[in-house]
């Protein structure tokens, strides 16, 4: 299995740190970036397309965040006109159990929905999806 480039998006720095440390322990990622909300994540993505970084292959995305929430990010990301967008796998990671959130994610075409906190097994599976 090849190592992946991963973007972690959560306003709670603890979860970003947890996922980062676990990914490092499992040696699953070759590049890890973090963003604290959808807006920061979007800025990072734009950086990739300006050639500043490699494209993230997996985005672990929280839903409930200030400034721009997870859904806001997905909508904005889907509107981006950039190459290789389909290579980016967005995985929602949340503690929400609201069926409305689930439905909205589905409607936006996001099919992978994981519960916090991610286990080692979750991360292995998540990074092996594409």
């Amino acid at each position: 299995m090849t190592k992946k480039s991963v973007l972690l998006v959560d306003d709670d720095q603890v979860f970003n740190l947890l996922n980062q440390k676990t990914l490092q322990l499992l040696d699953l990622a070759d590049e890890i970036h973090t963003a604290r909300n959808g807006k920061e994540a979007l800025d990072l993505i734009n950086d990739y397309y300006r050639g500043a970084r490699t494209i993230p292959e997996v985005i672990l995305l929280d839903l409930n965040m200030p400034i721009m929430d997870g859904f806001g990010f997905i909508e904005a990301f889907q509107k981006l006109e950039v190459p290789n967008k389909e290579r980016v796998l967005i995985i929602i990671v949340t503690s929400s159990r609201d069926p409305k959130d689930l439905k909205r994610a589905k409607d936006l075409g996001i099919t992978v929905y994981l519960s916090k906190p991610l286990t080692e097994q979750d991360l292995r599976v998540a990074l092996n999806f594409n």
Partner: peptide, 15 residues
């Protein structure tokens, strides 16, 4: 959701 978030972060940290 808002009660679980900090609780789950503690769970993750313990692990």
């Amino acid at each position: 959701h808002n009660l679980r978030a900090p609780l789950l972060s503690v769970l993750g940290l313990v692990r």
